[in-house]
Design a protein around this nucleic acid. Structure first.
Lengths: 200, 200
DNA sequence: CACTTTCGCTACCAGCGGGTAGATTAACCC
DNA sequence: GGGTTAATCTACCCGCTGGTAGCGAAAGTG
């Protein structure tokens, strides 16, 4: 019970921090701003986070881990490389869209992260690249994909999707599901999969 | 002569500012840092720029304009939409790679730009999207491209390329020319152009 | 060589904001 | 209901940094 309350407060702080970091930037947001938004005062935040930087890390890390997990779920699915890639891309796109502010904050505020936190995230990102590259390689070996440069393709696909954080608007023209589906279509095209229509 | 010297000093300030903003972030860099790197003192900078924000704008704006210009050159080329798209993508990729620090600074430090400067850049970005969307539409109408959702394709292609600023390393595995070529290949695949091999 | 102009520097200020110490209040418990 | 503990606030500090005023030195000028 006590722990749940503490966890809840921590979450509330994170929510407001995300909102303000996203809107005004990390250095453009003061701890007083966050506290005011919550109706509390600055020292309150310090009972849940060691420092402003700690707060930033808590905003970024879990979201990057969710991204890797999405790719991992695609890879772990039973099915062909084509099906795995579709699932991985859809899942990753969903993370980027649903956690757009966190993703945006991470990519913008990287330089404000403490070195240890950054190192941990960089490790996670490497895992992301490895998983995606491996998936593409498997597809090439299975004869389903046609990719001259797998590493570059992984970066291109990852980038196309990550970039969504810059332009996506909630209540935009497309639903999340549509968006995920079309991103997967693009990824399959980039992987050289033929017969997109046949999978619809 | 006098004007050239002034312009040169301005350029030197910008060079160091780009270097430091890129390495440490905008707020992580002080004007004293920049001045020290140049072997001068802070007031020197103020004879060339009105404020630290002005300096940031001067780092970002021209590079975004170069990006649009690259797309424009592709569009203005005589040739088929396929050829135009290839040129546009290659040119834009080259800008992103060659001006990687400036591109990175812009996307990271957007929230630190003065509203007027940001507004100007946003206008330029809209022009970028319009040009690219128009080019894709022309290709579809000419029967060369097969794109279900042109606006989304423009964002996906633009994103795939822009993202290079996050991973590209000078002295990387691929030369700039190779990179530009392969990005163009990806873009054509995303546009549904068949027979990539036939154009090699 | 005196006079002027140009240029950059020394020295300073003021506000901001992360972080903390200690008081204060509320909750909990015999 | 007194006493203890946990939670949060008030009030403060201090280092940092963007920005400026005014000085001094050098260089150009007749």
């Amino acid at each position: 019970m006590r722990d749940e309350i503490i966890a809840y407060k921590r979450e509330r702080i994170l929510e407001e921090a995300v909102k303000l970091f996203y809107a005004r930037g990390f250095t453009g947001t003061t701890l007083d701003d966050i506290a005011a938004e919550l109706g509390v005062t600055k020292p309150f935040i310090y009972t849940h986070f060691r420092s402003k930087n700690d707060l930033l890390a808590a905003v970024c890390l879990p979201t990057i881990e969710m991204s890797v997990a999405a790719i991992q779920r695609g890879v772990d699915t039973a099915g062909s490389p084509t099906e795995k890639l579709r699932l991985a891309v859809e899942g990753f796109t969903r993370v980027v869209i649903e956690r757009q502010p966190n993703i945006a904050i991470f990519f913008r505020e990287e330089k404000n992260l403490a070195p240890e936190a950054l190192a941990e995230i960089v490790q996670t990102q490497k895992k992301f690249d490895r998983l995606l590259s491996k998936l593409l390689t498997d597809g090439v070996e299975a004869g389903e994909f046609d990719i001259p440069d797998v590493s570059l393709a992984a970066l291109a696909i990852g980038g196309m999707i990550s970039w969504s954080y810059t332009w996506h608007r909630p209540n935009g023209r497309l639903s999340i599901e549509e968006l995920c589906g079309r991103m997967a279509d693009f990824a399959l095209q980039m992987a050289g999969v033929r017969l997109i229509a046949a999978m619809a």
